[in-house]
Write a protein that binds this DNA or RNA. Structure first.
Lengths: 163, 163
DNA sequence: ACAAATCCCGAGTGTTTTAGTAAGATATCC
DNA sequence: GGATATCTTACTAAAACACTCGGGATTTGT
């Protein structure tokens, strides 16, 4: 479930681009250097973003990349989908027959698929690049927690590695 | 970003268990057969779930697994975290120094991390196993909540302080 | 025209993760 | 005691990951 470097680097690059929108193209070398990423690797990642129209490229010296649309029209979900494939994909395990679920009394894949996938995608699609470069307080409508306790629940249910 | 089979199989098994709650232990073989999964593989996955207290095991003949808490107290986010590690993890790329972001004018990782991670986790944590086994229409409150700003996912009397 | 900068593209590579299989040990019911 | 289960560890083929590398195409400045 965690984002791989593809998603992280790509999202980072997009935010960098958004921060520098309207100031001419930004080269991959510039992004790679100030974000501490591999330029060559970033090249591969951004090609998908270019193909999907989220960035435009300007070739040649003094070239680089610019956002292909307004930051508020680029959704985080779109970026993730391009870089990492479908979000929270649940596929029927039995086979590709869409009716297989009907035959199995206990096939729960479809239920999970319908109920979990969409809300997650909705959240990612509700956040745009513009949201990511806005000042923190304007993000409150998304996080909705000005009085968030932020207490770490003491159940450490996520470490089966150590111990 | 997509769930691996670990998350899918584990979630599927948990839903299966929830559907059969109160009817005695369910063996992995039973789950594996009716969901079309590998029993041996499922064994490995469920051990993490057991260690975190989400399922209890009964050994021996006629043994199996039962939910360790009520279905409404088991969050999908918890299951995913146990099986797949932290959700939507963004780590600082530079190093582990929490102050590294302060030094880089353009380090955007922290921004993304804070703004994207929490909403996704919130969604996953707002869906419980009970939601997944409920009839479809009762799930509407989760999927079309974009026009109800007042309906924040308040802590619905969940005591995640299990002994 | 030429060199430098830059995007573009595909191939190659070491490491890690995935998605299991397999086998044996332990515990419980009948 | 035997059948049924959980538990635990070890092993592995294949895929994905996270790059590196080399070369080609395009534009800019001189």
């Amino acid at each position: 479930m965690k984002l791989s470097t593809k998603g992280r680097y790509g999202l980072t690059a997009m935010v960098d681009l958004a921060l520098n929108a309207g100031e001419g193209p930004v080269s991959l070398r510039t992004i790679a250097e100030r974000q501490g990423l591999s330029e060559n690797y970033l090249e591969q990642l951004i090609s998908g973003l270019r193909n999907s129209g989220m960035v435009n490229s300007i070739r040649g010296a003094q070239g680089g990349y610019v956002l292909g649309k307004k930051a508020e029209d680029i959704r985080v979900g779109d970026i993730i989908r391009v870089l990492e494939g479908p979000i929270a994909a649940f596929e029927c395990e039995a086979n590709d027959d869409p009716e297989c679920c009907e035959k199995l009394d206990y096939c729960v894949t479809r239920t999970i698929r319908e109920k979990v996938r969409d809300p997650v995608e909705d959240v990612l699609d509700s956040i745009t690049l513009a949201d990511l470069v806005k000042d923190p307080q304007t993000m409150d409508s998304l996080t909705d927690d000005e009085d968030k306790p932020e207490n770490k629940p003491e159940d450490k249910a996520d470490d089966q590695k150590e111990a």
